[in-house]
């Protein structure tokens, strides 16, 4: 049983003119299938940087990253694009929806690059929007939607290709607490359906939806606590017992 995510001594630094910012200073993280992990930490600690690496949106300065057992460093541009397209659903704090496109078109976007036919595309996108209770907003553009609705569109977009791994970087960061709870309810459901989830958050009560909380500080993992050892998944059987190496 391979882990979904395994990183070893992952670092990422940014050249800022003459100075170098060390955003990650050696992260070892293992996340198994159907785990639900929250990542916490103070602002600037490197949470987003880590998520971008995990999401194959960025490449590490050093260290290794295996996704489903495959070393990501050896993959080419097209391969990475395919992984972003099929295997990972990424939810951004700022939604990152196309402003000129309707909700439906936004959700169709990954399917377009996945080479799905228009008819099938429409159906799948409509389905995904239905899952986030937005079937009556399909023809609305982002600026005609509330913040919570926008985030649900972006979640629908992340889910439409049925990726096994869903990454969310502060998905509730721009939302009020009631809307945040709705969104977290969606994530809980995804987890029960067998997805692997990694969610970055600042808030403890949001993080407590997860089974496990990883805390990052100054580019390193500071703590890794398991809240619930039993997975909340409906498909427990296939979920491997996690070898949780607490540091």
């Amino acid at each position: 049983m391979t882990d979904v995510i395994r990183t070893e001594a992952l670092t990422r630094s940014f050249e800022m003119g003459s100075t170098t910012v060390q955003a990650l200073r050696g992260v070892d993280l293992v996340i198994g299938r159907n785990e639900y992990v929250a990542i916490m930490g103070p602002s600037g600690s490197g949470k987003s940087t880590l998520m971008n690496l995990i999401g194959c949106l960025d490449t590490p300065t050093s260290g290794e990253y295996w996704l489903n057992g495959n070393p990501v460093a050896q993959l080419g541009e097209d391969e990475l694009a395919r992984i972003r397209n099929r295997e990972i659903g990424f939810v951004f704090q700022t939604f990152n929806l196309l402003a000129r496109a309707t909700a439906l078109r936004n959700v169709e976007l990954p399917l377009i690059y996945g080479g799905i036919t228009p008819a099938e595309r429409r159906e799948l996108a409509a389905d995904a929007l239905r899952q986030v209770d937005l079937e009556d907003r399909m023809d609305h553009r982002p600026n005609q939607l509330s913040g919570g609705q926008r985030q649900r569109v972006s979640i629908a977009r992340a889910l439409v290709t049925k990726p096994a791994l869903v990454l969310a970087d502060e998905p509730t960061g721009n939302l009020d607490s009631k809307t945040s709870m709705e969104i977290m309810g969606l994530f809980d459901r995804l987890h029960r359906q067998g997805n692997t989830l990694v969610v970055v958050t600042h808030e403890r009560d949001i993080a407590e939806h997860a089974q496990r909380i990883v805390t990052i500080k100054d580019g390193r993992i500071e703590s890794d606590e398991v809240l619930r050892s039993a997975p909340a998944s409906e498909s427990v059987a296939e979920s491997a017992p996690r070898a949780l190496e607490a540091e």
Binding site: E77, R82, R84, L109, P110, Y113, R157
Partner: peptide, 10 residues
């Protein structure tokens, strides 16, 4: 950026 993030190739 959005397009590339959701899987657009070069």
């Amino acid at each position: 950026g959005v397009r590339k993030a959701v899987g657009a190739r070069q």
